[in-house]
């Protein structure tokens, strides 16, 4: 069996050599030594060292643009599922519409998807989302799929090159939420191709040279038709 080249993999409790770097995410200190919190890969930048987990629950962070699903409706707020252990809230004042209290279902009903920004998040992981921003809206038509939240940066790619490649090759509209929900709209066949491509990126996210391989994948797909 031949394996594709991967980055250095660590398990929970593995000792991390930090050298001159500063430990950041996914690393805990014990007795002035550093250990991994996750099963994931080591990522080094100029100053910091992180562990990027292969899988982890999404935790809300301020200014993340997420896709949420309306779960519950209160008199002045919607409860939103943001693919996290913690639900988020959307207040009627944070929408682009003039909503009267008690009349929320006219705008968003249970099961609707929205594209929104996390406006507030606190230390006990309570969060609020806001739709008062450019591009924020209710997502109509289309289809929403789910990828593991830590894989989202890879689906987007450096400067968005991966998602732009998929968009242009499949002729679809795609919105990627930081929380792992991805909205895709277009011709049904094209949407299916896009979903397969995204799932492939998710599966192989920790390997090297993925954008090139995706380019080849699309070339092969076109050659087959």
């Amino acid at each position: 069996m031949k394996y594709l080249e991967t980055k250095e993999i660590v398990y929970p409790g593995d000792r991390i050599e930090i050298n001159d770097l500063r430990p950041r995410n996914g690393i805990y200190e014990d007795d002035s030594q550093y250990f991994s919190e996750y099963f994931g890969v080591i990522q080094k930048s100029e100053k910091f060292i992180d562990i990027a987990p292969f899988n982890s629950p999404y935790l809300p962070r301020v200014n993340d643009k997420v896709i949420g699903k309306i779960m519950d409706i209160g008199p002045t707020m919607w409860t939103v599922d943001i693919n996290s252990p913690y639900y988020s809230l959307l207040h009627i004042n944070d929408t682009p519409w003039h909503v009267n209290a008690g009349d929320l279902t006219r705008y968003l009903a249970a099961g609707d998807f929205i594209y929104a920004r996390i406006s507030v998040s606190n230390e006990i992981k309570e969060s609020w989302v806001s739709m008062r921003d450019t591009g924020m809206r209710k997502l109509e038509k289309g289809q929403v799929i789910l990828v593991k939240p830590p894989k989202v940066p890879r689906v987007i790619g450096k400067g968005g090159n991966m998602i732009n490649l998929i968009k242009s090759e499949t002729d679809t509209k795609i919105i990627v939420g930081q929380n792992g929900f991805i909205w895709i709209d277009g011709e049904p066949d094209n949407v299916n191709i896009a979903i397969n491509a995204i799932k492939m990126v998710e599966r192989e996210a920790h390997t090297v040279g993925l954008t090139d391989r995706m380019g080849e994948y699309f070339k092969k797909l076109k050659g087959g038709n």
Binding site: Y11, P12, G13, G26, Y28, D30, F35, E37, Y38, F39, G40, P53, F54, N55, S56, P57, K148, P150
Partner: peptide, 11 residues
């Protein structure tokens, strides 16, 4: 639990 990505000190 490690597969779920819950932070752990050790397995």
């Amino acid at each position: 639990i490690a597969d779920a990505g819950v932070p752990m000190r050790d397995l």
